[in-house]
Design a protein around this nucleic acid. Structure first.
Lengths: 233, 233
DNA sequence: TAAAAATGATAGTATTACTTTCATTGACAG
DNA sequence: CTGTCAATGAAAGTAATACTATCATTTTTA
């Protein structure tokens, strides 16, 4: 029912809409499970077909290749996360509180939503954490971008930019800050799990991001009581 | 001559030390060129062998697979960058100035160093920008970490942590901040080139990071003169 | 109930990611 | 000067990957 559960993803992401058929929906659910289990590199359409009791040929009718499928799933996650952010911010007026809530939503996205029984958001979040950047870190990034494959991600960042700018309209780097907060959230959670010496503990990520964002937006040029300087012309 | 040009990389990164032989060195130089040209996904040992006038079998005697080769090249870059950071900080005492210089080195790392004629640092930087995270975003990350394959990256982050802590020893998230600054530097440069709507312009990255770091380290809890609030419990 | 769409079954191709074996080359040690 | 040994090359082979094509069958829907 909720529009977020069936986001209209860019049609270049797929050959045939996977949300429109039974096999398509099973494909999506099972691919999340399998990607979470064995990772993107070991993931093949053959293995997915076997797990589904289907065939490679059938799956290739939905997605050109596994990279497109990954991009689709990741886009789905961004659309879903964007909905959660908007929901969390609903009827909250205070800009700082809005930023706080938005960052909370970005970090807490690892919990499963019982409203979508056949779609494991927690597993998808783990997949996004480990694989999302592979969607754009390719030689085809410009062509894919041209085709609109990263629309959902850009929308989410654009929403965060709005939240950031509401706190401090004069801040010079709202886009960089928004995308950094979003990227950093996932990366720090990944580091906490796998390379803990690169972070300060898994429970700290939310606090870190909040402090970082607030500090950046609080300081017109430099925060502490320093001699007058002219950075913002 | 400089130790940084022949860093002692973890021996699990390779089967036979590529720096020790002529073919090995050509392998490294050519793989940077080829990776830069066609990207990691399209890169194969067969293509590399052809480009070198050698054979697959010969190359497989140096590296287990292309993923290890990538990890080696990326580690080389981190070791090199760490040296540049240390060099830039040499004989500078002021903590804030040190942080500024460190961030400058991290961002300016895209320029080629004429001291290493057969190693194109600028090309390697582009490769690192696009492919570095693929070194650890795999299902083998824990085993690879155990084997010490990410030592150079951790060392660089540890150095940055020291610089960060010198500015504000009480700051609560020095590791998260250091790794975020480093990751963000490359990601923002990548975005500026390929997904410009996620950033604020290619020339802004240095200023963004500097402001971000300084702001985060300036604020004990919350920076602006606001009514008393309890964030740090 | 006929047409259209979706799926399955089967097969095939080019490429990838290696491994194996053996011959050749060059360096260096005695 | 010769024997040895490490490095390389040449050639071949294998299992898997990443698809594509064809055609029959089932399911949907108009």
């Amino acid at each position: 029912m909720l529009p977020s559960l069936r986001p209209d993803l860019n049609e270049h992401l797929y050959l045939r809409d996977p949300q429109a058929t039974e096999l398509g929906r099973r494909l999506l659910a099972e691919s999340v499970r399998l990607l979470d289990e064995i990772g993107f590199e070991a993931f093949t359409f053959r293995k997915l077909a076997t797990a589904l009791g289907s065939t490679e040929a059938s799956l290739y009718r939905y997605f050109e290749n596994k990279h497109r499928l990954l991009t689709y799933l990741v886009s789905w996650h961004w659309a879903w996360l964007r909905f959660r952010v908007r929901f969390a911010l609903h009827n909250v007026a205070d800009p700082r509180q809005r930023l706080r809530l938005a960052l909370g939503a970005v970090c807490e996205a690892s919990t499963d939503d019982p409203a979508t029984p056949d779609f494991d958001e927690a597993a998808l979040f783990r997949v996004v954490m480990a694989e999302a950047s592979k969607a754009y870190l390719t030689k085809e990034v410009d062509a894919d971008n041209q085709a609109g494959l990263f629309r959902e991600y850009k929308r989410l960042v654009a929403d965060l930019v709005t939240v950031v700018q509401a706190v401090n309209p004069a801040y010079a780097h709202p886009y960089a800050l928004a995308s950094t907060l979003l990227e950093s959230a996932r990366k720090q959670l990944f580091f906490a799990q796998h390379l803990p010496s690169l972070t300060d503990g898994p429970d700290q990520v939310g606090a870190f991001l909040e402090h970082l964002a607030m500090a950046a937006l609080a300081a017109p040029a430099a925060c502490p009581p320093a001699p007058a300087s002219s950075v913002a012309g």
